[in-house]
Design a protein around this nucleic acid. Structure first.
Lengths: 335, 335
DNA sequence: ATGAAAGCGCTAACAT
DNA sequence: ATGTTAGCGCTTTCAT
């Protein structure tokens, strides 16, 4: 089934009247051939439609793979979508191929993914997971390749960390909302049973409120993944149990927008009757009738810098252990 | 830099007192070993933390790679996000690893991506591109692996095709909108200079309108990629030039929702003053105050069926050359 | 500037 | 049930 009808180094060498080694040098630009030879070799490469076999190259003692593994919670989120877009574009530009995985906030799934990926001997991996299993950490150590932890900043980076503090994001929003005069504030989260970064933001949020002498009046943690729907129904639920809340902070913008849709459907005015704040800075948040108050995360920059950090490490260039990507709380018209 | 500190088949064989070949058989479950041997081998595998080297396995004469390449226009779209999610989940479940790429509707970018991927000798590829360069077609042929064209249905599938007709989607919406009594209809598209499937839907849309004796009254093709913003500004533009339009059909739901945001901001009522229809069936479309009229595309099913088709072909199981994934026009409250 | 030889870790084919 | 041999296509080393 997987027959190779293709020419190899040997075939080109024969056709060009040189040795395999010379062809290899020409192809990789390693010194050791004349201009005349180069031209002859390249002519044959084109004529025979030579397709390199990186498997063989990566397999050999040299072991130079250009495969990079990237694992995120999921792809169905505007934020992770643009993060992947940026990482992939950056890696592709630098000559690497991206292998993906999603763990749905389950460290065990990340572990399963990593085992499958590790056997391909990737040049490095980027992980957007909150937690890692012991087996994952052991494997990462054994792999002896650069590991970039992205999205959150970890206190103990395995290798390189590029991201920002979710705790600080929540804290900042807590202070902002308290400063707007809101007093009975609720939090609507998702993936209740899993350790998401949203929970970290919630912790920071509580601390920010505490700074102003407030406590979180209600919390609604849904089992579902964050989504527009989840925000819609989560709002319905939290308000049915706590009708007097005057502000809601959401796991992310999609949920906040879903919440706004619920409020609009019920004729509840935001920010008049109730304030709404999201997180992430998705594009849609900026074109709402009233722009959503949220924390903007520069996903494109984060993706680019994390991919570049990995490649710098591979090239032996100096890389900071921790790179902070600044986020920005953007007050909108909803709180 | 890429040193392997890991045990190989040889090490396990020595430790278990058998040959490499026996270890290989145990690991792959190929017949030819006793239960006693199996237990002994597996004990050593665990003890030594053996990590298989698929590079070597795929490289050999057997050439059994479990790498699959997937190329879509972009990742920053709710539809492609859930498509990738579904493809990746399905492939992972079946034991494959996903390598990604995006071509931004440029066949040349798909070609560049494919060349990078092909050298890793993937087991197969899934392509969501509208068009392919000649070099791409040649390379796909030379690769001798299954190729699944997804998203659109092609008249001449290279190998396997899983998708639906974008032309029919547009046609159906054209007839529907005409049937709703709209008469001065405009189309707001994106990526004007590229051959997108949106253009195919537009053609079908025109044909659907023609069926009712109507012609498209205005077209606004933006240079930008489809997005909420693009829909917002595209609507502003088309209406400033054609103030009397009574309905707008958009490249996708994100643009339609952006359009609705513009209309709301300007105090223009939908569907009262102007009708709005999108395409794709993104989740947000269903929670708007008035549900968006759109064509729902079952991205999860499409992803699953296309990935399964690829694996069936690899397993030698029968596969239909063309699989139609039905879409559904869902009338909402916007037209 | 060029070539010859060795070997990466694994599996198919062929013994025993 | 188990072992031995050969070789996948490339790059590294060490000649010349």
């Amino acid at each position: 089934m997987t027959r190779k009808s293709k020419a190899g180094l040997e075939d080109i060498a024969r056709a060009a009247g040189v040795s395999k080694m010379t062809v290899s040098r020409v192809l990789r630009g390693t010194p050791g051939f004349s201009e005349d030879t180069r031209a002859r070799v390249m002519a044959e490469v084109d004529r025979l439609g030579y397709l390199p076999n990186r498997l063989a190259a990566a397999f050999g003692p040299a072991g130079s793979s250009t495969l990079v593994g990237v694992c995120v919670p999921r792809f169905t989120s505007s934020l992770f979508g643009s993060l992947i877009e940026s990482i992939n574009a950056t890696l592709a530009r630098l000559g690497y191929q991206t292998m993906i995985g999603s763990h749905d906030q389950l460290p065990e799934e990340e572990e399963v993914w990593l085992k499958g990926i590790a056997s391909w001997r990737p040049a490095g991996v980027l992980l957007a997971g909150r937690r890692h299993t012991k087996a994952t950490l052991d494997l990462l150590r054994d792999m002896t390749v650069p590991v970039v932890e992205i999205w959150d900043l970890t206190t103990q980076p395995i290798d390189i960390s590029v991201g920002f503090s979710h705790y600080d994001n929540g804290y900042e929003m807590g202070r902002y909302i308290a400063g707007q005069g809101r007093r009975k504030i609720g939090y609507v989260g998702a993936l209740a049973t899993r350790d998401t970064m949203g929970r970290t933001r919630e912790k920071g949020f509580r601390a920010g409120l505490a700074e102003a002498g407030l406590t979180l009046a209600a919390t609604e943690l849904l089992q579902d993944r964050p989504s527009f729907y989840a925000g819609y129904y989560g709002t319905e639920t939290i308000l049915s149990r706590n009708p007097t809340l005057d502000c809601l902070y959401y796991h992310d913008d999609e949920m906040a927008i879903g919440g706004l849709a619920y409020l609009a459907a019920m004729g509840i005015d935001a920010p008049g009757d109730i304030g709404v704040a999201g997180w992430g800075g998705m594009e849609a948040a900026a074109i709402l009738p009233r722009r959503l108050t949220t924390t903007v995360v520069p996903t494109t920059r984060l993706g680019k810098e994390s991919a570049e950090a990995l490649v710098h490490r591979l090239n032996g260039d100096p890389v900071a252990d921790v790179t902070v990507i600044p986020t920005r709380l953007v007050p909108g018209g909803t709180v």
